[in-house]
Nucleic acid binder design. Sequence first.
DNA 1: AATGAATGAGCTTTCATTCAT
DNA 2: AATGAATGAAAGCTCATTCAT
Lengths: 208, 208, 208, 208
Amino acid sequence: MPKIVTDSDRLQKRRIILDAAAAEIARYGYDRANINTIAERAGIGRGTIYLYYTNKEDVLLSLLNSIGSMIDEIVCKCINSDQSWPQKIRDLALAFAQMALDHNDFFRVHISALHGVNRDIGQPVAFWLMKSFHRLTAALVQAIQEGEIFLYDPQTLAWIILGTLESMALLPNILNLSESLTQERANSLATFIWQGIAPSAKNNMVLG
Amino acid sequence: MPKIVTDSDRLQKRRIILDAAAAEIARYGYDRANINTIAERAGIGRGTIYLYYTNKEDVLLSLLNSIGSMIDEIVCKCINSDQSWPQKIRDLALAFAQMALDHNDFFRVHISALHGVNRDIGQPVAFWLMKSFHRLTAALVQAIQEGEIFLYDPQTLAWIILGTLESMALLPNILNLSESLTQERANSLATFIWQGIAPSAKNNMVLG
Amino acid sequence: MPKIVTDSDRLQKRRIILDAAAAEIARYGYDRANINTIAERAGIGRGTIYLYYTNKEDVLLSLLNSIGSMIDEIVCKCINSDQSWPQKIRDLALAFAQMALDHNDFFRVHISALHGVNRDIGQPVAFWLMKSFHRLTAALVQAIQEGEIFLYDPQTLAWIILGTLESMALLPNILNLSESLTQERANSLATFIWQGIAPSAKNNMVLG
Amino acid sequence: MPKIVTDSDRLQKRRIILDAAAAEIARYGYDRANINTIAERAGIGRGTIYLYYTNKEDVLLSLLNSIGSMIDEIVCKCINSDQSWPQKIRDLALAFAQMALDHNDFFRVHISALHGVNRDIGQPVAFWLMKSFHRLTAALVQAIQEGEIFLYDPQTLAWIILGTLESMALLPNILNLSESLTQERANSLATFIWQGIAPSAKNNMVLG
DNA sequence: AATGAATGAGCTTTCATTCAT
DNA sequence: AATGAATGAAAGCTCATTCAT
C-alpha cells in the first residue's frame, strides 16, 4: 500500500527544501553550497531532494523564480495602486526594504545571482527583472505623458529606480548597519528619488 | 649565468596572468574558473601561475585590489577636483561608465564579489569600497555645511550615489544594451542625482 | 527504506580497505602508494575510501595501530604465560616469526614506519612499541630480581630482545631466504638470546 | 675562457651535495625531500645538482653507497684484526655506535632505506649489506671450525650480530636516549653477544 | 516514497626536471 | 659551468548524482 502524497504535500516539501537551500546558498554561494548539508537542514535524506528537483541547478532556478516573482508582485502592486506618485515610490521603497528583511536569504541569493557572472543561472533573474522593468517603464511612460513626473528617458529612469531600491535593501548586509533604521533609510531614498523626478525640477539645467 | 628577470618583467607577467584570470572569472565565476584554463589563456604553463601567486584565491584578491584601487582613484580624483558639484557628479558618472567599459572583466568580477556571499573574498572589495565611501562622505559633509547641496544624511547619500553609479555601469551587461549610449546614460544619471541633492529642492516635503 | 549497514559490515569494509592499503604501501611505501590503486585493489570506488577513512594518513595510522596492537598482544601473551623463561623466549620468537609471515604486508609497513623518518607517521608505531617495551622491561625486572635471568640493565635488554625479534622476522624479506626455515631460525634466535641472559651457561641445553 | 674544474673540485662538490641531501632526507624521507631545499642547503642553484647527479634517485643511491661502503669497511677492519673474538665484537659494537653518531644523517637514511619497501632504492643497501654479511659469515665459519665460538648456523649468527648492532645504534633515535651512554650500551651489547656465542659461559668475564 | 552508500569526474597544487641565458 | 624560470605529470580529495534496498 503506497503512501499517498497529495499535491499539497509535494508543494510543502518543495518549499522546505527551498528554504534550506536558500539558507545554505545565502551563506556559501551556489557553487559551494552542499546538497548534503541542504538535505540535513531540510531534515530529509540526500536522495530525496532528487525526487522533488531534477538537480542542484533546478533548486537554484526554482529559488530564483520564487524571489523574482515575489519582487515583481511588489512592483506590480505598488505601481498600480491609486496612490500619488510620491506615495507609490515610498510604498515601493518600504516594501523592498521589508522584503529584504523578511526573506533575507532569498533576497541575497537573488542579488548574488543578479550580479554574478553565470549566464545560465542569471536567466530567471533576468526574466523577472525584465518583467518588473517593463512594468515600471510602462507606468513611467504614462506618468510622464500626464505630466506627473519630470521628463526623462523612461528606461533609464526605471533602471535607476530599481537599482537604487536594491542598493538600499543591500545596505545593511554590506555595511553591517542596524536593521532598526530600515524604515528611515527607505524614506530617505523615496525622498531622494522623488526629488530627482518631480515635475518642478529645473535645477538640472546646470548640467550640459 | 642565470636568466635575469627584472621587477618590471615580473610585474608584466603578473599583469598578464591577472588579465587572463579576469577574463575567466568574469565568464564563469571564481569557483568555476579553472586554473588550467587561465594558464592557457595567459599562454603559460599551469605551474607558472604559482610562481607569481601563492594560490587561486591570491589571484582573485590581487585582481579585486587592482580594480578596487582603480575605482577609489576615480572617486578621489573626481571629488577633489576644482569643479562645481554638478560637474563633479557628472565627471564621476562618466568616469565610472568609461571604466566599466575599459576594464569590463575586472569590473564584473568586482561587482560579483561585492554582491556575492563569500566573506573572505569580499574583504578587499569591502576595504576599497569603504575607502571610497568615506572619501565621498567627507566631501559631502563639507558640501552640506557650505550649503552647496541639500541637507541629507551624508552616509545614506554617499551610499545612494555609489550605488547608482554602479547600477548604471552594470546596465549594459545585464540588459544587453548598446554601449554607444553610455555617455547619455551617464548624463541622465548625473542629472538625476543632482536634482536629488540640489539646494533648491523643497519638493521632498510632499513625503512624510 | 535505506540500505541497512550494520557495524559489522562497516568493520568488514574497513578491513578490506586496510588489506588493500597494506599491500600497496608494503610495495611502494606510504608516499608512493596511490589511493586510486588502493581503491582498485579493494574493488571499490575511489571516493568510497573517504567514507571509511578521513584521508590517506588516517588509513596508514589505522594500519599501524592494527599491527602495533597485534604485536603488543603477542608480547603480552608470551610474557605473562606460566612457562619458564627459556620457553617464553622461544614462544616469543616463534610467534613473531609466524606473525611476520601471516601478516607480511602489515609487518613490513610497521617496520618501514618504525625506521622511517616521518615523526607523525611514526607516532602510533612508537606508541605501541613503548607499550610492548615497558611490558617486557617490567617482566625482566622481576625475573632479574628473582634470579631467573642474568643481571643486566633491563631496558637495554628489553630493547635487544625486541630488536633481535624484529631483525629475525625481517630476515626473509631482505635476504630472500626460504620461508620454510622460519621455525628453525626462531629456535636459533631463542637459543642465542637465552644464552645471553641465562644465569649460567648450562641452561642453553634446555632449548632444542 | 671556461672555468677549469678539476676532478678534485668535482668530488668536493658532489660531497657537498650529498651532505645536504643526507640532511634533508634524514629529516623528511626520500620522497618528501625537496631538490630545491637540498640545493639551497648546499648553497648552489637548483639546476647545478643535475650537473653532478643524473636525477634525484641518483643522489640517494650515491648516498647509500657512501654509507654502505663505510659500514662494510668497519666490519672488514674489525673482523680482520688480530684481536681476540670478544675484543673483535666489542670493537665492532663501539665502531658502529660511533659511526651512527658521527654520520647520523647518512646512517638514518641507510636504515630507512634498508627497512623501507622500495626495491630499487634498497638495492645498494642490499649490495653492501650482503658484502658485510658474507664477510662476517666467512669469519664466523672459520671461528666455529677453530672452536673459538659456540656452534651455530653461521648465517643466522651473522645476521643476528649485524641486526643487533644496528638496533643498538638506532636506539637513541627512536627512544630519544642520551648519546652520552653510547659507549656503555655498546659494551653491554658486546657482552650480550659474546655470551650468546662464547664456547662456555665464563668467557663473558673477559669483557669490561 | 525515501534513503544514504557508492561512485568517479574534475579540481587545485606540488615538484623533479629542462633549458635559455 | 652555473642558474632559476618555466613546465606539466601526477596526486589527494570533494561532492553532485545514482540506485539498490
